[in-house]
Write a protein that binds this DNA or RNA. Structure first.
Lengths: 136, 136, 136, 136
DNA sequence: GTGGTCTAGACCACC
DNA sequence: GTGGTCTAGACCACA
């Protein structure tokens, strides 16, 4: 338990989840930012490299990056790479809180539907923060 | 408390969430069962009624019901309606874990998208545990 | 000069402009809205139809529509079609004015660089409003 | 007013506009000439200096200058620098019209993207004509 | 029928 | 080398 190290961000796909691959990439980048694994200025894997890593087509990676760029989560610099962009400040606190409550309610319902408790959810979430990518 | 009452279960759709409508219906039925809003034997709205209520195509409702029937969450009785069936014991731990991971990834991404961190999520979840009966 | 009629919106591509095709489509939809040729609720050509009309690949049309959907200019309903969405209200008036001034300055500079005057620009713009699509 | 002065022409980049950087430089040189900010014989910043000023790669500046040189807008004199060259008469009307249409489409789309109409654009342009010397 | 996702692969633009 | 655009075509999801 020495000093905590910065662990390289790692993408993982679940090809059987029914969630589109490009969407999984988007979610994981957003999640990585939310969990602190990805910070402003960090470079993401290149389109081609991530495509190889995940055994998918580069177009699929490019699409995910592109959508994240459109909403200003990423910045791409042609010929250079793709980076986490400075996140802009969000508006209305009330609406945000309402949305957060909705997200929580949803996840509890979905987890409950397959027999997991709120504690199970919390445990999973804590895992994300402490060890964003266990394997190297 | 003698006679069984018609539970006023309410479906809500988010047409902008990217989650297919039929899937949202499935999730809400499952969630309703997990949360106790729906119990064994409760009757669901008819396909046509729910389609009207949600302003969607009856085929979409039918598909959701059909899929729930396939996994024995619902039972349809010709000429009578659609009901919550007795829940069987759940199977494979691997599939469940996969789904839990999906739920967690999803909620983290959604929270991240509106500027919340994993810690914010955990805090909200803990709030639910401390005051579980505030809602309803 | 009888009553003014609603003219069907028409896309036109300039394959030699160097501007990406999907971008031209995006610009024309946005322009159509700005000029009043396209209104909330109007259905756009189907992905496949527009692809045929413009002799381009359906993927290119889909990409343009997709990006416009992401910024909530369009709404797509699977199996139904693609429609002009209700435009949301914009924020800060000052910043907007600054941006408009920038757009005007830019266009004047670019037009001037090839020997056109402000009047030429105004004339072209007026043409857009009066006859959004001359040919039928 | 005797000796010719170094005009304090200033380049400005918008890295989020989607317009290639080299193209923005080209446009600004052309625009500067059209607006009178740059005159025949004026010296431009060196490739390296401009690259430093704009925090971009010298190759990008070099490319912009090279393309302007190819169309004889600029002249480079070895060991001296890069200068605005005497402008030749412009050619084909078709190409010019095409470019004007592009400029108009572009400005309408950009204005529409922030909620302005074609009328707003026209109004702004008219304002320029009425008070052409307010700026500078 | 509608739109959505993904692959394969070509070619371009930029650094 | 980087990312960007486009095509061709398969297959899926939804109404």
């Amino acid at each position: 338990m020495g000093s905590r190290q910065r662990v390289p961000f790692r993408f993982r796909l679940d090809l059987h989840s029914g969630v589109p691959v490009y969407r999984q990439i988007i979610d994981q980048v957003r999640g990585g930012i939310a969990s602190g694994s990805l910070s402003v200025g960090d470079q993401l894997p290149t389109v081609r490299q991530l495509a190889v890593d995940l055994s998918i087509n580069p177009n699929t990676v490019a699409r995910a990056y592109r959508e994240l760029e459109l909403v200003e989560v990423l910045e791409t610099h042609q010929g250079t790479g793709t980076f986490i962009s400075a996140q802009k400040i969000r508006g209305g606190g009330e609406e945000r809180s309402r949305q957060l409550a909705q997200i929580v309610t949803d996840s509890v319902a979905r987890a409950g539907a397959i027999g997991f408790t709120v504690e199970d959810l919390v445990e999973q979430l804590r895992g994300l923060v402490l060890e964003p990518s266990r394997r190297r």
